[in-house]
Amino acid sequence: MTTPLLSLTDVACTRGGLRILEGVTFDLLAGEALILRGPNGSGKTTLLRTIAGLQPPESGTIAAEPECIAYAAHADGIKSTLSVAENLEFWAGLFGTASIDEALAAFDLAALRSRRAQSLSAGQKRRLGLARLLVTGRRIWALDEPTVSLDQSAVSLFAERVRRHLDDGGAALVATHIDLGLDARTLDVSEFKPARVATGAFDESFL
């Protein structure tokens, strides 16, 4: 329990060649959730993509077990011509988990399982995207605005799922603007905004 699942030390991230975060340091323990907050453009998504391994940090270290992070982005990665079950079965097969029934039930999708994804509503698509997290079987969830287009009951369904995931020894890293009712620490990303360096200002005045 004492060794953190995920540990960031003095991490700096860039987006579009511009350094937007530096000195990010935190530990994430098993059973713990961390809420990332900050205004638009403050680097929440960039930080999550860096942690998920989609881009390397500019400096600093990210220590985690290999392949233990499940990333959920703004886009859900749903193929509109496949059915709900086919979409989920594909990801389950890729991550080597057997059953999709529990994930379908968890997000109230069982009745929609043979429906084509193109005829789902935005909220139903989001629920399908979140159900994918359950079939990954990974311990750390890195979630980018998971509650967009979810209604009130779906949000509480999701919060309940996250709580259960934490109870099972998982951890979650959630960038969100709403209150999920989770017992979680909050990290304000805008604290890590780098002080304006001379070259940055120079570039900007030219552009």
């Binding site: 998920a52 989609l54 992070i69 990333y71 982005a73 859900d76 990665g77 193929k79 990801w91 890729l94």
Partner: peptide, 11 residues
């Protein structure tokens, strides 16, 4: 549709 991000983080 974001699948490529998810594929890149898949095992």
């Amino acid at each position: 549709d974001g699948s490529l991000d998810l594929l890149a983080t898949a095992p």
